Amino acid sequence: MQVVTTQAGLGRIEDGAFALLDTAFPHIGAVLEQEGSLQCLASCAVRRRIPLDEITPTALLGRPHAVWGVGLNYLSKAARAGRGVPEQPILYLAASSGVSVPGAQVVIPPAVTEPDYEGEIAIVVGRRLHQATESEVWPAIAGITAANDMTARDVMRTTGIPALAKSYPGFTPLGPSLRTPDDLADRAAIRVRTQVNGELLQDDTSAGMIFPIPDLLSRLSWFAALEPGDVVLTGTPAGTGQDRACFLADGDEVRVEVDGVLPLVTRIARPLDAAPRDHRLTAPVS
């Protein structure tokens, strides 16, 4: 089942159209908080059908309570960066206020000089996961969607703090649709592709992850309880702007495609008359 939150309401994608559901839930996040899964939406009556090109997707989950991410989780990315494979996931927590709706324009702050894209598979938690085994992970996942885990590379380099480099308003585009795990052709090899201005720059599958999805969420759940509606970003493959020393510019369009869900499009705006300002933060002293 593929589900979308739109201006018209919550619905399923069926036979190439949007089926608006007869439900009082405003978004998927509200369903998960109450139900722990999306199964109740499978049997909802359809109020009417709308062509896909006439819908306007909105915030898929409302505002997630938590957005977790992991650095250097693809073999291709580690190889491109010339870095060794980490023994433990490099985890971080980003501000949920940075989540933006699909199709939104992201305005780059004047202080950021190296804004970058990161196409990723986003996992949405359905049921609480705490001290979970790997076998318990997929049954607790509500679904997958596309994410663009944008990063200010200069801020990351200057501060060494992922949360600061990734939490600017709009820096976590998410959506527009969510696909339930039972509907995935191969959970172990979910493809993620990223295009910038129509040029394919990232193309890999979750089979190339250093810490596969069940392993990653299981490890994370031993440090923090993952709650319904939480999002876990699973890392980005090679091909980012950092890899090419080419960062996002005004007017760029980033398109992230993840198997089974609608493509996520982000448009970049950078005021030409905005002069960079001091971050007022420096790297920590060891």
Rank of each mutant, 00 (worst) to 15 (best):
P214G: 03
C246V: 04
A59E: 13
N197Y: 11
E199I: 15
P212F: 11
I13Y: 14
V125W: 00
Q2N: 14
P237C: 02
P110W: 02
L72Q: 01
W138D: 06
P57R: 02
A104D: 15
G9R: 04
R219T: 05
E54P: 00
Q34H: 07
T113I: 09
D204Y: 04
V3N: 08
A245S: 12
P102L: 12
I141M: 09
A111T: 05
L38Y: 12
L21H: 01
E136C: 05
A207I: 07
S97Y: 01
Q34A: 14
T180L: 11
H27S: 12
E257R: 10
R157D: 11
R179E: 08
A225N: 03
W222G: 00
P110F: 00
D243A: 06
F171E: 03
A238P: 04
V254T: 06
T282P: 02
R48A: 08
V112H: 10
G16S: 03
N73G: 02
S96M: 04
T240I: 05
P51H: 02
P212T: 12
I144L: 15
L216M: 05
A152V: 05
P109D: 10
A274Q: 14
A30S: 13
P89F: 05
R157Q: 13
R267P: 06
V261E: 01
V85K: 02
A142L: 07
T234Y: 06
F223S: 02
L164M: 15
L20C: 02
L272Y: 02
P181F: 13
P86W: 03
E253Y: 12
G11Y: 01
P139Y: 05
S177R: 01
L220Q: 04
E33C: 01
V4S: 08
A275K: 15
